[in-house]
Structure formats: C-alpha cells, structure tokens
Amino acid sequence: MESQKVPPVTGAGFDPAYVPGLTSPGAEAVAEDVKDTVTEPDETTEEVTREEPQDAKPEPEPAPAADVDGPAMEAKDRRGSITVDATGVRFTLDDQEADFTWDEISAVEYGTSRKRLTVTVHTPNSRWYPNDVEAPDKARLAEWTDQLDKALDAYFED
C-alpha cells in the first residue's frame, strides 16, 4: 500500500492570523527588500531637500470641529469617543482614530444596549465600521441618542 502525502490543513481554526490568499514572503525576499531600501544619501538629494521654494505659502490649517455651526454630538468614555458634526463622523479608540466625511458615508446606524451606544458607519464599498462608548448613566445615553438624531437629520442626506 502506498502512503499518501497529505498537505497541512490551514485556516483560521489553526492559525488566527490566517488570511486566505495572503502568503508571507520568504526570508530571501525580505533580505532583498531591506538591501534595496538602504541606500547611501547623495549630495544632490540633500541639497534639494534643504531648499524651499521662495514663493511657497503655508497652507491654512483646517478649522477645528468645535467651530462648526450646527448640531453636533460627542460621546466619550474612558477608552474612546464618537463625534458627529458638520465634517462627518469620527471614531477614536485608545490611540486609533477613524474619520469619515459625509461624502464617504452611505449609511449610519446606531443602537443602544443598557448604557452602551454603538454607532456603525457604512461605506459605499459595502464595509462597515462600528464603534461603541459606555455612558455613565441612562440619562446621558438618552442625551447622546437625542443629539445623534439631530446631527444625522441635519447633515446626512437620504
């Protein structure tokens, strides 16, 4: 009887970092990439980077979100926040931030559970991005949902 060579089983059940279709590069490819990116600086590059165009004007800084007229909602807890204003929807969680302008959003939905507010932003490419914050009490949660309704009515086009 001939022994069959069985390929190893792969998948998320065996490797949580497994993503179908993605393979890690071999050690040789990584060494080549590192070798290609490490280059000696030449004098012409340094001179170009030090020179600044004389007629260049500094770009104006965008106005902070607090200066925007109209209804706005900001919900914060100890780890993150959800902000909805005239510029769009902004999520933060720990040191990560995601900004969505109203042009990038195809739908916004929200839900509440006990003292938690969950807001989900849907984009035109069929992706969704949820974020949630915990309110200190149910009265604050009701206040957040009321402000969110007003902000979505004002800025989001059906």
Rank of each mutant, 00 (worst) to 15 (best):
W128I: 04
P60M: 11
R78S: 09
S106V: 01
S24R: 07
D77E: 07
A56H: 09
D103P: 08
L117C: 04
L141I: 01
R50K: 15
V68K: 13
K150G: 04
A29F: 10
D149F: 03
A72R: 15
D85L: 11
V38F: 08
L93Q: 12
Y110R: 09
R90C: 07
D15K: 03
A142F: 05
R50T: 13
T45C: 08
T118K: 07
E43L: 06
V9E: 14
V6R: 12
P64K: 02
E46S: 11
A75P: 00
E109S: 14
P58F: 09
D33L: 15
P8M: 14
G26I: 02
E143I: 08
R79Y: 12
T145Y: 02
Y18C: 12
E52M: 05
I82C: 05
E2K: 08
D85I: 13
D85F: 14
D103A: 14
A72D: 13
K150Y: 05
T112E: 09
W144S: 01
V68F: 15
M1N: 09
T92L: 03
T120M: 01
R79V: 14
T118F: 01
M1E: 10
E32M: 13
F91K: 03
A17F: 11
T118I: 03
D137F: 07
E61R: 14
T37Y: 04
Q96S: 11
V38N: 06
A65W: 13
A63E: 15
V119N: 08
E104W: 06
S81P: 00
D132I: 00
I105R: 06
P53L: 12
V119R: 07
F91M: 03
E43D: 12
V38I: 15
D42Y: 05
A72H: 00
V34H: 06
K35G: 12
D69K: 02
Y155C: 06
V48A: 13
E134T: 06
D95T: 06
G21W: 09
L117S: 00
G80C: 00
Q147H: 04
N131F: 00
I105D: 06
